[in-house]
């Protein structure tokens, strides 16, 4: 490593030593914090107390979609902005048409139909067990990735508009729900008591579709050719 033939741009010995010292200090700090034990009680008690009213029995979903719904709303905005940014860079690179091998086609015909099923399961499970919109959307996006890298153009040519609409649907529905609950003296995103479960499911369904399209759109790496 310390030979004279190190490539340009490689850090020198002094920088390495300083970095190592900083990392050691950070590790020691983390270890110290772990040994010292939990200082603050955390918010798990408050979450557990408010859980029955939240519309979801899985505390993670309750925090993400209800107690801290504002964060999740802005995260959807970040994801949407990311795909808009990638699309603005240029058109997607052309897919090189190849004839997929029969093995790949056979595997795709098994795996791709399973993905929407597991996606729906994870979405539904999110209200009571680990799961939720992001995981479900990622599974669906993975099926899309599998389809894209198989190298054959989809036989059904999706027109551009549904993709754009699908990408903004998650953010749009979330915003609409956030604003629609406001009449009646409620705050932004303060769901009415009996309706919380249904509203969370609505938001999560739209978010799942959007996340799947956004992740697949990011994988394509540019604006689809039909897009203006």
């Amino acid at each position: 490593m310390s030979s004279a033939s190190r490539p340009p741009g490689e850090p020198g010995l002094l920088l390495r030593a300083v970095l190592a010292l900083l990392l050691l200090a950070a590790a020691a700090g983390v270890a110290l914090a772990l040994v010292a034990g939990q200082v603050a009680p955390g918010l798990s008690g408050a979450v557990a107390a408010a859980l029955p009213d939240s519309g979801a029995s899985n505390p993670v979903t309750a925090v993400l979609l209800n107690f801290r719904g504002y964060d999740t709303l802005l995260e959807m905005a970040v994801l949407t902005a990311a795909v808009v940014g990638v699309w603005s860079l240029g058109p997607a690179p052309r897919i090189r048409e190849t004839e997929p091998s029969p093995v790949l086609l056979g595997m795709n015909s098994v795996l791709i139909p399973l993905a929407p099923l597991i996606c729906a399961y994870l979405l539904w499970a999110g209200s009571s067990r680990p799961g939720g919109a992001f995981q479900a959307g990622a599974v669906l996006a993975a099926a899309g990735v599998l389809f894209i890298i198989s190298g054959r153009r989809p036989a059904v040519h999706l027109p551009a508009a549904p993709m754009s609409w699908g990408i903004v649907a998650g953010l749009g529905v979330f915003l609409a729900v956030a604003l629609a609950v406001m009449p009646g003296g409620r705050e932004l995103l303060e769901y009415p008591r009996g309706l919380a479960g249904a509203l969370i499911l609505l938001v999560e369904t739209a978010a799942t579709v959007s996340i799947a399209l956004i992740l697949a759109g990011l994988f394509i790496g540019g604006r689809p050719e039909d897009e203006p």
Binding site: T98, L104, L114, V139, A142, V145, I149, S150, G151
Partner: peptide, 13 residues
Amino acid sequence: LLAAVAAVAFVQR
């Protein structure tokens, strides 16, 4: 379900 995706990406790309 998804472990195969990376393998397909490897073979195809």
